[in-house]
């Protein structure tokens, strides 16, 4: 079903990321339960869910920050090692929900740090400074400048990253992640706190990244952003994957709406109910009739909210 939606982009449909049965427990708390997710080459996949659904936990399982209690994560048919630096070396780069730049390094240095896994110069090479060292250093700088141009920060290469405005810090984080030449880029809420223009720009940037042949998995709360951007969207609710499919499928799914907005009445949803309430309001002389159903509703509503409440605490 999912391959249907992506055929236009990547006919070969090579699986870049393949997570099977990922479960993460913290003591008695199951933050992520038996989630399957795969990302094909050249695809943009969205991961949405209400607050506390376990999205970031799932991300951390993918990037080696957490070791999943059960299940395995494969990147291009190799099982990922349980160390975050090895995951990056394997080809998965990430950004963070709350920006984690190296605040007191320059913009260029930040990107150069991202090049770490793709360069080999060790301590002795740095001390002896042979021709190989200078060549590698120059190549790294050239590549870093290229990436800064790609995200539009080439003019600020010598600024301290802490002095950049918020939107540019996000861009720099993406550039730094791209510096490790990943096959898959994980973006954790890349548009959080952005205005609509900046969100548009980020959208363009993600498309441009996809066009470079890098698959993208993105967590986001901005629905318009997600549905514009993604070939496929997976919905995580209370640690479990609810639905997966293209935008229309997910948007039309009642369970998704329920997860975000609460469940409608079981017996009489929709127009009938509204009509009944309106009728009741119009005929104020029969209040007892209308009060009865509302009394019956409130507990139902309360139940759905209490259901969601533990989920909130599940995440971290």
């Amino acid at each position: 079903m999912t391959t249907d939606t992506t055929t236009t982009v990547a006919p070969a449909a090579e699986r870049v990321l393949d997570a099977r049965g990922v479960t993460m427990r913290f003591g008695g708390l199951t933050a992520v339960r038996n989630v399957d997710l795969h990302v094909n080459a050249g695809e943009i996949v969205g991961l949405i869910g209400p607050n506390g659904a376990g999205k970031t936990t799932f991300f951390n399982c993918l990037t080696g920050l957490y070791i999943p209690t059960e299940g395995e994560v494969r990147y291009k048919d190799t099982v990922l090692p349980p160390k975050s630096f090895k995951v990056t070396a394997a080809g998965i780069a990430r950004t963070f929900q709350n920006i984690r730049l190296f605040a007191n390094m320059t913009v260029l240095e930040n990107v150069l740090v991202g090049r770490h896994t793709r360069t080999k110069e060790g301590f002795w090479s740095a001390i002896l400074r042979g021709p190989g060292f200078h060549k590698a250093e120059a190549a790294s700088r050239a590549r870093a400048m290229e990436l800064l141009e790609f995200v539009g920060l080439e003019k600020k290469a010598d600024h301290l990253s802490r002095n950049l405005p918020y939107g540019e810090q996000r861009k720099l984080e993406i550039a730094r992640a791209l510096a490790s030449e990943p096959g898959l880029l994980l973006l954790d809420e890349p548009t959080a706190g952005m205005n609509p223009q900046e969100t548009r720009a980020t959208e363009e940037l993600v498309f441009a990244i996809r066009d470079k042949g890098i698959a993208v998995l993105v967590i986001e709360h901005d629905m318009r952003f997600i549905f514009n951007l993604c070939d496929r969207v997976a919905v995580l609710v209370q640690g479990e994957k609810l639905v997966e499919g293209d935008s229309a499928t997910v948007q039309g799914d009642e369970r998704v709406v329920a997860a975000y907005l609460g469940e409608p009445f079981e017996d009489a949803p929709g127009n009938e109910e509204i009509a009944e309430v309106e009728a009741a309001e119009a005929n104020a002389d029969t209040p007892a009739d209308t009060e009865a159903p509302t009394d019956a509703d409130t507990p139902a509503d309360a139940e759905t909210t209490t259901d969601a409440a533990p989920g909130k605490e599940n995440d971290r």
Binding site: T88, F102, V113, H116, G122, F123, S125
Partner: peptide, 30 residues
């Protein structure tokens, strides 16, 4: 010599990155 040359190199940048934010540095493959 060791200080200057190692400080301005891949390894030196990795040191500073670790000092600034160890989690992010690990996520950068260090």
């Amino acid at each position: 010599l060791v200080f200057r040359r190692s400080g301005d190199s891949r390894i030196g940048r990795a040191w500073v990155a670790i000092r600034e934010d160890e989690t992010a540095a690990l996520a950068m493959g260090i």
